[in-house]
């Protein structure tokens, strides 16, 4: 199996912050429409693709939304003040280049501060290179959301780019949709919205689908960098099978089935325990009368920065594990 870099690059670089997922949704829908039986878009904007089968009803969810910055105020000189959409460390924003939906580019910088290490979102602004409020308003309205200006880099071993969280999951779902055998299970692939602000899309999608089994495919933090916490997941160590995070304790049946499958097929895997953070799986398992839920995670360094890093081998292991599981 090889990674389709041009498709992945397109998925990763397409605009779609939480609540404004339209562009990425259209891209994904076009990519998969010939391989699925039905595509639906619900009220919140989830893309739900159904590949019919006779077996268990399985919902597989990756979120297509990204973190971003929303313009909340424009001052007389034309500088834009913003609030964060999703979890962002203010310090990581300094000097960051950003892009709005209409292509307007800008840079984030900070007011003059006494102490640089106490930087808050309130102290930052976006400069889009205009001269005055009116000029800015021609390009950016209050409520518009910008994302990090993307640069997609790859080496023989890794991919470096913002928004691998969770476009890499979307890529894995798309490849699975395309390559899965004539399936025995009834598969619902969900490209969910608003995960970064509280797993809202997965909640409503799970309600309409009523799956027997839920599975989230998302990135997870690694603990192999200098002075990191004493947790288990490492880059290059294969697909991470979730045991627990803040939103979910994985159901024993699902976790054990994934481990057995990985062992049987010789797929490199590791077990994931995460102290913070959650995924769509957290929302899915609480739906209606309860759903047996687990998750496959892609190890990813520097999550929510402009330089997220994943391993190509890990991606392939996740792909193989997901494909084997749904088949």
């Amino acid at each position: 199996m090889i990674i389709d870099s041009s498709l992945l690059k397109e998925i990763v670089t397409t605009y779609g912050p939480s609540s404004r997922e339209e562009k990425i949704r259209n891209l994904i829908a076009n990519e998969i429409k010939e391989y699925v039986d039905e595509i639906k878009i619900d009220a919140l904007g989830n893309l739900i693709a159904h590949k019919k089968g006779l077996g268990k009803k399985i919902m597989i969810s990756s979120h297509m939304d990204q973190i971003g910055l929303m313009a909340i105020d424009i001052d007389e000189k034309g500088f834009i003040r913003f609030t964060n959409i999703g979890g962002i460390k203010p310090a990581l924003l300094l000097g960051q280049r950003v892009r709005f939906e209409n292509g307007t580019i800008g840079v984030v910088y900070s007011e003059k501060l006494e102490e640089d290490n106490k930087i808050k979102v309130d102290n930052l602004y976006i400069d889009i290179g205009t001269n005055g409020r009116e000029e800015t308003l021609n390009k950016v309205k209050i409520g518009d959301i910008c994302i990090f200006q993307n640069e997609f880099l790859e080496s023989d071993k890794v991919i470096i780019s913002p928004y691998l969280d969770d476009r890499i999951g979307c890529y894995i779902l798309i490849e699975t949709i395309k390559n899965v055998m004539k399936n025995s299970n009834d598969l619902y692939f969900v490209f969910s919205v608003q995960e970064e602000v509280g797993m809202r899309g997965a909640k409503t999608a799970a309600f309409s689908i009523e799956p027997d089994i839920g599975l989230a495919v998302d990135v997870t933090s690694t603990f192999d960098t200098p002075k990191s916490e004493k947790l288990n997941v490492k880059l290059f160590n294969g697909a991470a099978i979730k045991a627990m995070d803040y939103s979910l304790i994985a159901h024993k049946d699902i976790k054990d089935a994934l481990i057995e499958l990985a062992e049987a097929k010789g797929i490199k895997y590791q077990i994931e325990v995460l102290e913070h953070g959650g995924t769509d799986a957290g929302a899915i398992h609480m739906s209606k009368s309860g759903v047996k839920t687990g998750a496959i995670s892609i190890p990813c360094r520097y999550i929510h920065s402009q330089s997220e890093m994943v391993s190509k081998d890990d991606i392939i292991m996740c792909l193989e594990l997901l494909k084997a599981y749904v088949e």
Binding site: I249, M286, S287, S289
Partner: peptide, 9 residues
């Protein structure tokens, strides 16, 4: 942890 048991039952 999540109160999922109470919610779903």
């Amino acid at each position: 942890v999540t109160m999922s048991g109470g919610t779903t039952s």
